[in-house]
Computed example of a mutant assay.
Amino acid sequence: MPRTVTLVLVDHAGAPLGALPPYDVPEPWWQEVTSVVTGARRRYGLDLAVLRLLAADRPAPPGGHLTYLAQVYDLRSVPLEAVSVDLSPHPLRAPWAEPGGPAGSVAWATAELDRLGRPVTAVAQQRTWNLSAIWRLDGEQHTAWLKQAPAFYRHEGAVLRWLSHTVPGATPILLADDGAGRLLLDHVPGEDRYAADVDERAAIAADHHAVQLRAAADVPGLVAAGVPDWRGPALAGWIRAALAPHDTACVDDLLAGLDDRLAEVRRCGLPDTLVHGDLHPGNVRGDGARRVIIDWGDAFVGHPTFDILRLTETLDPATAAALFAAWSARWRADVLGCDPERAVTLLRPLAPLRLAAVYAMFLAGIEPSEHPYHAGDVPACLGQATAEAKRD
């Protein structure tokens, strides 16, 4: 499913210049911009950076006709169409979505790599949307990745620092962190494991158990480092606050017994620990020899059951049951007297409810033009939570 893209160009000061004629790119996913940038270079000889989504002809990804804002660095004689767009400031606009933002971030990353003795010879923009901007930085012998995230993900650097010191090799190597959302990460060979089979998911679960067991002993340190603390009642309060703008009868029903349910979960005896928050196979990268867990922006301190529920959510019940059994056996061996199976039963309807709150948090923290990325996710997760509650 291709995308058709129209680029509205601005100069370094943000002054509008006009729009390029529409052209097609192969990837349907709106946030992927590699082929958007290379398409402009190949067709028009323009060097540019995509800043942000301006409009879409459909309510949600993928595919369709998208209009992006892009900063051009060297405007040549190309056919530009007159266009009327609203380029006024917005308080929730990401720093990389402003003219000069990408160049400033790349300059920071390049300077950090120079300091490390890894001069950059080529830079390629890979992704830009409301949750992150990503660039690939190649040198003669090394590759690094620059990731920039919004304010609600700024604890990812703290998580990666803790992991690198406590469980080395479990995550990508953090080369630098500016404390304001920019992360410089060493390259991890391989590919994102979206297609992981049940055996690989079982191995991921075992790897992650070792991380969570170690993290359970350092919860105060993780909280002190800035990792969100969503233990017990704090999780209930955060979910209620996040979903308040989406108040419906469905939400009211789901929240009615939340505190009692979380109290029952605590009686199951599993320790609070570091939770990845989005542990699907696509957030694991590997090449057969090494496997690491990536994208820790959704991490929080809380109940470990949320991660095994996310890792198994696309599996059929019989296949998932084997992973739950192995996961439960590990916790029973390490925490005497706990009841992992009961925790899974209790938290199953709360997992999609928590995800609905996460998406609601995104919507509250991004500018309206980028709402189509997530607007459908809140009702979808609430619907799943309702279905799970009825089966409970």
Results as ranks from 00 to 15, higher is better:
A109W: 06
R118D: 11
F152W: 08
H155C: 06
K147T: 00
L131F: 13
G117E: 03
L137M: 13
K147I: 01
N130G: 09
P150M: 05
D114N: 13
A122W: 13
H155V: 02
S132G: 06
I134Y: 03
R115E: 12
A149V: 15
R154W: 04
A149R: 12
L116I: 05
H155S: 05
A144I: 06
D138K: 08
K147S: 07
R118P: 00
T121A: 10
L146P: 07
Q141F: 07
T121E: 12
I134P: 00
A149M: 12
I134G: 07
A151L: 14
V120W: 06
D138P: 00
T143Y: 14
Q125H: 01
T110Y: 05
P119Y: 14
H142A: 10
T121Y: 05
N130R: 10
Q125C: 05
S132I: 01
H155M: 00
Y153V: 06
D114I: 12
T128R: 08
H155W: 02
E112I: 06
A133T: 14
S105Y: 01
A111I: 07
A124E: 13
N130C: 10
H155G: 05
N130Y: 14
R154Q: 08
R115T: 13
A124M: 05
A144L: 07
L137P: 09
L113V: 11
P150A: 04
T121W: 03
L116Q: 10
R136I: 00
